[in-house]
Simulated assay, not measured.
Amino acid sequence: MSRTPREIFESYVYAGTVSRDADALAEAFTEDGVFEAPLVPDGASLPRRLAGREEIRTAMAAYYELPVKDGRSPNFQKSGYVLHTTADPDVFIAEIDTVFDGDGDSEATAVSLVQIFRLRDGKIARLRDYFAPDLLS
């Protein structure tokens, strides 16, 4: 039985944002899967484009070893998302609003982003992640 867009999206978020598990994240992609973050500037800690499961695994493992900006983490109870299916059953769009709690000295920060998923055989063949690149620095 094939997984739904919701199941694919939630397992992707759990592997990446929640557990920061590069192996699990890479396994969400097809062998030749592509991760793209078109708004990320050259030289950023997160590469703009990763091609192939092994490149995704290696690059994300290195990225997850870096300290999280300001030590912050998302507040999943305050955050939310909406999935939009398309006429193509292998394409869906995630509209995400993530809330990062303040550190005591600062207020919570809300960040909105959009991800476009293209699937093949129940795995991510291409993911375009459109988010504010200043989240990385």
Rank of each mutant, 00 (worst) to 15 (best):
Phe35Trp: 15
Tyr81Pro: 06
Phe35Arg: 00
Gly16Asp: 12
Thr98Gly: 05
Pro5Asn: 12
Asp134Gly: 13
Lys78Met: 07
Leu135Val: 07
Gln77Ile: 07
Ser45Val: 15
Gln115Cys: 07
Pro133Leu: 03
Leu135Gly: 15
Asp32Arg: 11
Gly80Arg: 14
Glu55Thr: 12
Gly52Tyr: 06
Asp21Phe: 01
Ile93Met: 08
Val68Cys: 01
Asp42Leu: 12
Ser2Ile: 12
Glu10Asp: 15
Arg126Thr: 11
Val13Arg: 02
Leu135Cys: 07
Arg53Glu: 06
Glu55Asp: 12
Ile93His: 02
Asp134Pro: 07
Leu66Cys: 07
Gly80Phe: 04
Pro67Thr: 08
Gly80Gln: 11
Ile116Asp: 03
Glu54Ile: 04
Val114Leu: 13
Phe100Glu: 01
Pro74Thr: 07
Val40Asp: 01
Asp32His: 13
Leu39Pro: 04
Ser79Thr: 12
Lys69Tyr: 08
Val111Ala: 11
Tyr12Glu: 06
Ala94Tyr: 04
Ser11Thr: 15
Ile93Cys: 01
Arg57Lys: 04
Arg57Gln: 03
Leu25Tyr: 02
Ile96Asp: 06
Ile124Pro: 08
Gly71Asn: 03
Asp101Cys: 05
His84Ala: 14
Gln77Trp: 04
Arg49Pro: 09
Glu107Val: 09
Gly102Ile: 06
Arg118Ile: 03
Gly33Leu: 08
Ser73Trp: 13
Gly16Trp: 10
His84Gln: 14
Arg48Asp: 09
Ser137Leu: 09
Ile124Gln: 07
Leu83Gly: 09
Leu113Trp: 14
Glu55His: 07
Asp103His: 05
Thr4Ile: 05
Arg128Gly: 07
His84Asn: 08
Ser73Leu: 08
Arg118Phe: 08
Ser106Ile: 06
Val18Pro: 00
Leu136His: 01
Asp70Trp: 09
Asp88Thr: 05
Ser112His: 12
Arg57Ala: 02
Arg6Leu: 15
